[in-house]
Design a protein around this nucleic acid. Structure first.
Lengths: 398, 398
DNA sequence: ATCCTTTATTTCTTTTTTAAATAATTTTCG
DNA sequence: CGAAAATTATTTAAAAAAGAAATAAAGGAT
């Protein structure tokens, strides 16, 4: 219902506002339902056919969409319209704790090219590597890349373009945006990795998710991050701190300590580190546990290794238990699990559901949990969506 | 940032859309900053003075605003504009577990008239009493009342105009909206009491709250309800079930059972019933505890009664502890406490803060808790705001 | 071969903002 | 004390965009 408008942020409608709104709506119809004809758009929007034609001409001139031949259904054959997919428009950087991935995508979020390298804790080294790779792609793209999206595991004031800190790398107020903007002369948008993943699910996920307005993304990695989407928009809260549900208390005597040192937090029970710690305990390898990485645990589980299966099964249960708390408080239409854990979804989905249902008190809301629909690089997709979402929501052309 | 638009709900911009948007903006400037002159509005909105004059004429003709004489500041004296406050526009019903309050308000949410009677569990009896009183007010108002807002303690699908149930009265799918709409021939909007209170804080609260976009309302009564406002809008979640944080687990061995029978829920620790149970235990009156009502406990606390003070102090601590969970997960700009407990705010505010700070793990987000700014009838104000908010957000006139 | 359907464009009208000129009324300053 | 400057509001004519209707294009149905 009624949304209270913010008089400080809002702009009055000018004579071009009508056109801006309708252009945005038509572009989004092409994006979501394309390929479609002008006549179809006029029918569903109830805009005049002449208006649709004029706006389509603008979008064609701006090279956002392109024409394809269509089949006649008993009349003049339509010229179908779809998003222009031939050129790279977004450059994405997935700055991870261990690996950094850089790639380009077209307007639809399809990955065109990508490469990765290990992240160095040395800020200058990592920056120059990113800048170098970005420049290569920008040169190759021949001016079609319009911006750079960066997702990273840390606290971000994205509306200011400021990174506050990246605990794992020990970077406090690193000038990432400034450095890359200066070196590439392109606009840069940063976002927390979990929020970026949520944004990617919203804009680039399969229809059953991107048509949902309210959902929660739970990103399982060495910690746990939560991204909340309310009414088709990322929820950040004051100072961008919202979504620290990873630190909520769900029990005692967790297998590892969370980042803040507590043995009661959700992430101490249900992160990759928790699973690895459980496996180490089961096999008695107390000292060598740092040497194993999560990918190896996954492989072992697929070979039927009993200890690996048990460690992951227990972790899955706690993932679900934490999700039950989110479901009770926020009643999301769906909860999405992302991260490497998705690779073992077929083995442990039931355990996650079981954990979630055991935690829901009154029987409602219903539990609906799905794995991420984004494939192998959700966080990179997130960095693309930072740029792409802008194209589809900013009202004016250029 | 980017909000993904919902193609199913959105309407394209017509030639009258510009006018609709600008009319809404101007009306909201008058509401929030009035009395103001046409020239001032033109300056701050950057609309042309002639445009502002035309729109103001429309608003005057619709009797939404009125002119007042202004002081000259070195030129032609301005004709100041403010909301028309002479006539009743909204009829509000606060259907409570024990008492029902009906009243009328002007455009600013000021209570003009009101009366109350005890709520009967007999549906027909309560309905006919409400209808009778409403008809009186409607007749007296001479056609100026434009709608009826109803707030009630139960599960509501407000976007459908359906009440699902009111557990305390044992009403399942009561046809409240249908009955009252048919009897009065006015549009009726229902909402859950907590959400209505949140809406009232947003639209009718003091500026320090109504200018905040993200906040949480905690309504303490015989249970605990939570209302979430996100980006100036009530958040409902799937099926309107969001905000059942009252049932989150925060400990064991609560003094009473919650509505679902659990002794672990927040509302079992921090509701009015919890405070009364603590007092009963302290005074040893195990059997007679039902005879005391919360107002009496408040009175005793103000006379300095030790047991009453102790019972309320402990309850206050647990109110704060539960709020700490909300703060960590949602990072609201402010958390507002409403309900009768606000009457003892001066005595126990520190205990609430103490409870909240003890629960916040990492030191952020900062704890900011305030009592409701709505005075004695927050829920009734909520029912007014259901109608008023519509006037200020619906784009078209009549 | 003709008519009908579907798609797209062109032309002209209506709505609404905007710019510029005009009018009204009061303070300021010489 | 009176003219100039300042502030507020209205009137008139213009530019931008949607909408309605006519026109054009191209294929299928009979």
């Amino acid at each position: 219902m009624a949304r209270r408008i913010n008089l400080k942020n809002i702009n009055v409608a000018r004579s071009n506002t009508i056109r801006d709104i309708n252009r945005q709506i038509i572009l989004n119809y092409v994006r979501e339902e394309g390929p479609v004809s002008r006549a179809y758009i006029a029918r569903v929007t109830d805009l005049n056919r002449s208006t649709v034609s004029l706006i389509v001409d603008e979008l064609l001139a701006a090279e956002l969409i392109e024409e394809v031949e269509g089949e006649s259904s008993g009349g003049r054959p339509p010229q179908l319209l779809s998003l222009k997919t031939t050129k790279a428009v977004a450059l994405g950087v997935d700055l991870g704790k261990k690996m950094t991935i850089i790639g380009t995508s077209d307007l639809t979020g399809k990955i065109l090219e990508m490469q990765e390298f290990s992240t160095s804790p040395n800020f200058d080294k990592t920056m120059s590597r990113i800048v170098e790779t970005a420049r290569d792609y920008i040169k190759k793209s021949d001016g079609s890349i319009e911006g750079i999206g960066i997702s990273l595991p840390g606290l971000v004031e994205s509306w200011k373009g400021k990174v506050v800190n990246i605990p794992h790398l020990g970077w406090h107020y690193p000038e990432i945006v400034e450095t890359i903007e200066k070196a590439t002369r392109l606009p840069v948008i940063v976002e927390n990795d979990t929020n970026a993943t949520a944004l990617a699910e919203l804009w680039l996920g399969r229809p059953e998710i991107s048509n949902v307005r309210d959902f929660v993304v739970v990103l399982i990695h060495s910690g746990i991050g939560t991204g909340i989407v309310f009414d088709g928009q990322i929820y950040r809260g004051k100072d961008g701190v919202a979504g620290e549900f990873g630190h909520m208390t769900i029990g005692t005597n967790a297998p590892v300590a969370c980042a803040a040192g507590s043995y009661n937090c959700w992430e101490a029970f249900a992160s990759e580190r928790a699973a690895l710690a459980r496996y180490a305990k089961l096999t008695g390898k107390k000292n060598g546990r740092n040497q194993m990485i999560f990918e190896e645990l996954i492989k072992l589980a697929f070979t039927g290794d009993k200890n690996a299966t048990k460690a992951l099964r227990e972790t899955a249960y706690y993932i679900g238990l934490g999700i039950s708390n989110l479901i009770q408080g926020l009643s999301p239409e769906v909860t999405i699990v992302a991260g490497k854990f998705v690779q073992v979804w077929s083995l442990f989905a039931d355990d996650i559901i079981k954990g979630a249902e055991s935690g829901v008190c009154q029987g409602y809301p219903a539990v609906k949990i799905m794995p991420s629909t984004l494939g192998a690089y959700p966080t990179l997709m997130g960095s693309f969506s930072l740029i792409l979402a802008n194209k589809f929501t900013s009202l004016h052309i250029n």
